[in-house]
Simulated scan of single mutants.
Amino acid sequence: MKIFGGKRRLKSNSALAIAAGCAVAFMFIATVISIGIYQQRMDEAKELLVEAEYEQYDSYVIMISSNDSSDFWQEVYKSAKEYGSEQGVYVDMLSTSIDKSYSKAEYMEMAIESNCDAIFLEGDDSPETAEMVAKAKHADIPVFTLESDIDMANRVSYIGANSYTIASLYGETLAANLVKQKKVMVLAGNTVNPTEASAFVNNMQSALDGRELPNGNLDFEVRTVESKDAFANEEYIQNLFKENDLAPVVICLDQESTESFYQAMIDYNKVGQIMLLGSDVSPTILTGIKQGVILSTVYVDAQSIGVSAAEAYIEYRDAGYVSDYISVDANVIDATNIDEAMEEVENE
């Protein structure tokens, strides 16, 4: 019995040793792969800096947003790049230079590793972004936030519209068009900070305070899309319609949600039953306003943000200081000016 038991223990010990060896080997391989991927990212970042230096620009600035492919951020990038090039500043959006997709924090890490001269960043309230911004400050790389802000302690300047002004524009549209609606759904896609969505509602309530609305004070409900998957916004909105979990008034706080909600209204035959207010400008959104499916959209001029960001960096570079807040106007497009807006887009 002892011999039998001893043999069993020997096999068990051997199995444990093999398992432990496999685990160590796996961890080693995973570490090597991780280091390799990290090094690849760093090499790509350094290559971008070399490219900028080769073009003989005075400064190299990297722009990072949560949705680089959107019409809005492409216009911000284009205007900043064009203005910057005239002033010896090379503005780069990493996602347009690298084939593989990375997270916002990873792009920040690459920007810092490249030792760029500044970072143009769409702010958010995530711990990862806060950590990277602090790291950039420690590396003496100034960060300028665009459209959405972060903690003032670690950025140089914020370029964007006043949040209360934006809420007031929505409030004016609602006050002029409400009949008996009382419930308002505020829909924030996965590129919008939940904190910003809540702040938007607070500003809306302040903007509407004292106004005589047809059915009294409005009831606001914030819905946020948490998943960062590629089609998360569209799937979330589809589920709202499938479950008829809707409101008579819907305000979408980003371009993708506006476009998806507009299309769902058509697909589910809800046109005329929901008052939809959108955000940003795109051919799809303008078409929706022209058709009368979207009541209006509020947008911040992307070109102004891009140019103002480049100007702010140049002033900071040359003078050593710049205003910590640079205001950009917000505007409304609705049935009264849709033809003019569509004509401007066609002529661009």
Rank of each mutant, 00 (worst) to 15 (best):
A136Y: 09
A188W: 02
Y158M: 07
E44N: 14
N13L: 14
F26A: 15
N217W: 02
D339K: 09
V300W: 01
N203K: 11
L240S: 09
Q205P: 01
R211E: 08
A264W: 01
A230S: 11
A232V: 12
R41M: 14
A176C: 00
D267Y: 13
G21W: 11
L295M: 07
A15V: 11
A309W: 08
T191A: 03
F144T: 08
V201Y: 08
K78N: 07
A139T: 08
G160T: 11
A310W: 04
E226I: 13
A15G: 03
D151P: 00
G160N: 06
T145V: 10
V61T: 09
I64N: 00
I37Q: 07
E259P: 00
D71Y: 14
Y236D: 04
D149T: 15
P248S: 06
G84I: 12
E147H: 13
K228N: 10
E53L: 04
Q181F: 07
G171L: 11
D334R: 09
N233D: 14
K270I: 00
V143C: 03
F26H: 10
V24D: 00
V179W: 02
Y158H: 15
M342G: 05
V293C: 02
S304D: 12
T284C: 00
M204Q: 12
E234N: 06
M42R: 14
Y77H: 13
A17S: 15
S282D: 03
S79A: 14
K46T: 15
M185N: 05
S257R: 09
M204I: 12
D149Q: 11
P283V: 14
E128I: 03
D301Y: 13
G292A: 07
V156D: 00
T96V: 02
I314M: 13
G5A: 12
D149V: 13
F28N: 02
D92V: 15
L246A: 08
S85C: 06
G5Q: 11
M265H: 11
T191G: 01
N162Q: 12
V24G: 01
D149P: 01
Q40E: 05
V184C: 01
G278W: 01
N203M: 02
K100T: 13
L213R: 10
F144W: 06
A19N: 12
V184A: 02
L146S: 05
V328R: 02
S59F: 14
S103P: 00
G36Q: 05
N337C: 05
E348Q: 12
Y236M: 09
L213K: 10
